[in-house]
Simulated scan of single mutants.
Amino acid sequence: MKNYTVKLYEKNDFQVWNAFIGSAKNATFLFHRDFMEYHSDRFQDYSMMVFEEGKLVSVIPANKVENTVFSHQGLTYGGFVFGEKIKLGEVITITKSVLAFLHQNEISTLQLKLIPSIYNHFFSEEIEYCLFLTEARLIRRDCLSVIDLEKPFLITKTRKESIRRGEKNNLVIKEELNFELFWNEILIPNLSKKHNAKPVHSLEEIINLQKKFPENIRHFNVYFNGEIMAGTTVFVTDNVAHPQYISGNEKKNELGSIDYLYNHLIKEVFPEKCFFDFGPSHEENGKKINQGILFWKESFGAKTTVQDYYVLETKNFVLLNDILI
């Protein structure tokens, strides 16, 4: 049986960590340290690195709150990240090593927010099997609305009519770096009015992140007679285009601005991607579904996949003894 060493990430591991992320089978740019550390002041980082005789074989983006370690709470997804050549037996032993490391460091529980399968480069569900073996408990399941761009999908008649309204109104779509207009005139006011909330990323943060990841963070605005009507910020990975932010003004339905924009993104900007991920439509940690939002996404031809959240006790590392017979 192979021996693995687990250590906490340190600043001098920056290049080694990022090189591994660049070649992993289930990683995206969100796991790059330049992305993770934009909010380092809000989280106590507890990211882990697993080595086999000096070779990095897995990383776990994570943060710590008291005696619980989380798949990094500042990221949309996380969990164990592996290289493409990893085998199931190795994953079982790596998982045992990580849980034992946490247990020895007085961490009682680990909460994992798994990366949705559409973001993986290869099949990567070994960790789900390990969660079964360690008696992990499913605590949340989010429904994601996703278009499989490699298969035929049907846009409804109602949505097509709205798209045609955008065409008739001569709406103009521009990809640009002008986040200020969208953030200050549409996104922030709408979130404040409708949800008493703020964007996850401040204006300064999204501008800085886009500069570091220009191919992965793209922004589009829609204009009518020179005035901004709507906009969206899209996070782009190898397989997936995912709108991170979307919002429009009070004329969005009348003009068809958002539908016109999304039809353009799906058919003209990202048709080479495997998936277009609208994200979740849930509330109350997946217990309730916003029917209006779900209807809108499904009217573009989106189908449902899920993202799972688990909690497991680190002492259960012993349950991974003698699995391989």
Score class of each variant (00 low, 15 high):
Lys85Phe: 11
Phe80Thr: 02
Gln111Tyr: 11
Phe80Ala: 04
Ser97Glu: 07
Leu102Gln: 11
Phe80Met: 12
Asn105Thr: 04
Asn105Glu: 07
Lys85Ser: 10
Phe82Cys: 03
Leu102Trp: 10
Thr95Ser: 10
Gly83Arg: 08
Glu84Gln: 14
Leu110Glu: 02
Thr93Ile: 09
Leu102Pro: 09
Leu102Thr: 10
Thr109Ser: 04
Gln104Gly: 12
Leu112Ile: 13
Glu90Ser: 13
Val98Trp: 01
Leu110Pro: 02
Val81Asp: 03
Leu99Gly: 04
Val98Lys: 02
Leu112Cys: 08
Val91Asn: 00
Thr93Met: 15
Leu102Ser: 09
Ser108Pro: 03
Lys87His: 11
Leu102Val: 12
His103Lys: 13
Thr93Ser: 13
Leu99Glu: 02
His103Thr: 08
Ser97Asp: 12
Ile94Ser: 02
Asn105Trp: 01
Val81Ile: 15
Ile92Trp: 00
Asn105Val: 03
Gly89Trp: 05
Leu102Cys: 15
Val91Met: 07
Gly83Val: 02
Lys96Trp: 13
Val81Phe: 01
Leu102Ile: 14
Ile92His: 01
Thr93Lys: 15
Gln111Cys: 11
Gly79Cys: 00
Phe82His: 04
Leu88Ala: 13
Ile92Met: 07
Thr95Gly: 06
Gly79Pro: 00
Leu99His: 06
Lys113Cys: 04
Phe82Leu: 07
Val98Gln: 03
Ile86Glu: 09
Thr109Asn: 12
Glu84Arg: 08
Val81His: 00
Phe80Gly: 01
Ile107Val: 11
Ile86His: 05
Val81Gly: 02
Lys87Ile: 09
Leu102Asn: 08
Leu102Phe: 15
Ser108Thr: 13
Thr93Leu: 15
Thr95Asp: 02
Val91Ala: 05
His103Gly: 10
Ile86Leu: 10
Thr95Pro: 05
Leu88Ser: 14
Asn105Lys: 12
Gly83Leu: 12
Lys85Cys: 05
Glu106His: 14
Gly83Tyr: 06
Val91Gly: 02
Lys96Ala: 12
Lys85Gln: 15
Phe101Leu: 11
Ile94Leu: 06
Val98Cys: 06
